[in-house]
Every structure is written in structure tokens, then in C-alpha cells.
């Protein structure tokens, strides 16, 4: 951290705020993984860390290294692009797998009482169509 002492204070404060925000969001998402009841509620939890959490930490890293090396350091954008594209794919496949497994055990979450399903005809959909 020897070179960091020469950074202007506003860069340090901006970086610190962004890093703390991102880490807090990732932590809240992970806590949601513990606290939320039921798989379909828990799937929403990791998106916190993967969207805004990753975004603000990557932005902090870009600002910090650009100031440290006095040239634009933008390669953290690669991680952002990659995470933005891959997280939805993972979660969608996972939800389909969970639906498929629940239906295979005759525990269709769409037919569970009290789940608040706003649907008209539940029988019209064949669970086999979720097999990719």
C-alpha cells in the first residue's frame, strides 16, 4: 500500500465507498440465501451481488488502478460484461432444473396452495418441454 499514500483523498474516499457498497450488497444477497424460505425465493438472492455488487466493486477497482498507474485501466469491464451475460443464464437453467425436479416428484410449485399463482390453465404446459 506504499503507493496508495500519494493518491488524492477524494479518490480514496470514492473507492472506499464503492467497495463498501459492493461488499455490503454481496453480503446482503448471501444473507438472503440463508433467510429466505423456499428455493424459488432464494434464487433471487445472488443477483444482488452479481449485478450492483459486482458493478460497484469493479468500478472501484477501475478508478483505483487508473489513479494509481495514471493511465486508464478498464479491463475490469471484462468481468462486468461476463458476469452480466452469465448470471441470468445460470439462474434460468437452475430454475428450470428445479421446476423439472419438483414436477418429477409431483410437487409442482405452480399448483401449491398459497403460492399465489396467477395463472389460468396449469395443465396446458408439458414439463418435458423444459428439457433443453
Amino acid at each position: 500500500m506504499s503507493a496508495a499514500a500519494e493518491l488524492p483523498v477524494w479518490v480514496a474516499i470514492l473507492t472506499a465507498a464503492l467497495v463498501l457498497l459492493g461488499a455490503a450488497l454481496a453480503l446482503v444477497g448471501s444473507i438472503g440465501l440463508l433467510r429466505l424460505r423456499g428455493f424459488y425465493d432464494r434464487v433471487h438472492a445472488p443477483t444482488l451481488g452479481a449485478t450492483l455488487g459486482a458493478g460497484s466493486i469493479a468500478l472501484a477497482s477501475m478508478i483505483y488502478f487508473s489513479a494509481l498507474e495514471t493511465r486508464p485501466v478498464l479491463h475490469e469491464a471484462l468481468i462486468l460484461i461476463f458476469v452480466a451475460v452469465t448470471t441470468p443464464v445460470t439462474l434460468m437453467i437452475l430454475v428450470r432444473a428445479a421446476l423439472f425436479r419438483d414436477r418429477a416428484e409431483n410437487d409442482d410449485p405452480l399448483l401449491r396452495p398459497g403460492e399465489g399463482v396467477a395463472r389460468l390453465d396449469a395443465d396446458a404446459r408439458d414439463p418435458r418441454e423444459t428439457r433443453g
Binding site: G29, Y40, V43, H44, T47, L48, A50, T51, A84, V85, T87, P88, L91, M92, V95, R96, L99, R119, A124, R125, E129, T130
Partner: peptide
């Protein structure tokens, strides 16, 4: 649309039925 809906926390794309043109989200 799938990427947008899934990467917004709180909503999740589940299935799109091309025959009926309906989208199911959680």
C-alpha cells in the same frame, strides 16, 4: 428480455411458451 428480467433482482424468467406467446416469471 430474459437477460433484463433475470438480472433485475426480484424478478426471474422461468419459461416462455412460444405457442401461446405467454411468458412466465417468478
Amino acid at each position: 428480455l430474459a437477460c433484463i428480467i433475470t438480472s433485475t433482482p426480484g424478478t426471474l424468467w422461468v419459461n416462455f411458451d412460444p405457442a401461446r406467446g405467454t411468458l412466465m416469471i417468478h
